[in-house]
């Protein structure tokens, strides 16, 4: 597969404004983005100092929060206009989420963790087991462990990635996916995310300050005080 297979549409935000209420001082603008596009088959990184608004932007793009103004377009839907229940449904169908601290259910097996999404989808978990096993094999997670707590941190993060891939969503959001891993494990996760974009045509969006990750991204969007400070294209952008 080539890096330019991208049949899906971009995730495109424009005029995005989000403010947090602030004690005594009215509201604080956390995100103010004129335009941002993340394309299928590419990894887009949101970089910037702590508190610059990377996570907030990620939560907006994934529909976990609703912006005060602006639009987030994906396949004809404007997430900014959808109610909470429909945004939940959108995430269920279109998005996978990877966190800094994995957020796995420790007392469950790797496979059951991957199947979590099956509990609140209309799919039968039984039918999904095969898929879960394949994903774990592909990501080289030892499947036979009874509890994810017994896995190494790098393996745990790969379980989390497998969980995000259960329904083969077109978009993967990752908030500091390598921040709690050592260099080697982090590198492995970065390579995995890259492969998902390059081979499977996923739209991958990461918030990170990991230099290794930023180096291997297609695009790095630097955020400062909620605004885009610079956009750097590392690798030739795929033509859509």
């Amino acid at each position: 597969m080539s890096a330019v297979t991208s049949t899906g549409q971009s995730l495109a935000a424009s005029g995005l404004v989000f403010t947090y209420p602030e004690a005594g001082k009215g509201r604080m603008t956390a995100v103010n983005i004129a335009a941002l596009e993340a394309r299928p088959g590419s990894v887009t990184a949101l970089a910037g100092p702590s508190g610059s608004g990377k996570s907030t932007l990620l939560y907006l793009l994934s529909g976990l929060m609703r912006p005060d103004a602006g639009s987030i377009r994906w396949n004809g839907d404007d997430l900014a206009l959808l109610g909470e229940a429909r945004r939940d449904g959108w995430r269920r169908r279109n998005a996978g989420f990877v966190f800094q601290n994995f957020h796995l259910i420790e007392e469950m097996s790797p496979e059951d963790n991957v199947l979590v999404g099956g509990w609140f989808s209309s799919w039968s978990v039984r039918g999904l087991r095969r898929r879960a096993a394949e994903l774990l094999d592909r990501l080289e997670v030892p499947r036979e462990r009874t509890r994810v707590a017994l896995l190494s941190r790098g393996e745990q993060q790969r379980v989390a990635i497998a969980r995000a891939l259960l329904f083969d969503p077109p978009v993967i959001f990752a908030d500091e996916p390598t921040a709690s891993l050592d260099a080697a494990a982090g590198h492995n996760v970065v390579a995995t995310l890259r492969r998902l974009a390059a081979e499977d045509g996923k739209t991958v969006i990461c918030a990170s300050h990991d230099a290794d990750l930023l180096d291997s991204c297609d695009r790095v969007v630097r955020i400062d005080h909620g605004r885009i400070a610079a956009t750097k294209v590392e690798i030739a952008e795929p033509v859509s």
Binding site: S62, R91, A164
Partner: peptide
């Protein structure tokens, strides 16, 4: 946090 993660993964409030 566990419930929040489930929500992020697409679980509805009802779930």
């Amino acid at each position: 946090q566990r419930f929040a993660v489930l929500r992020a993964l697409g679980a509805s409030r009802l779930f």
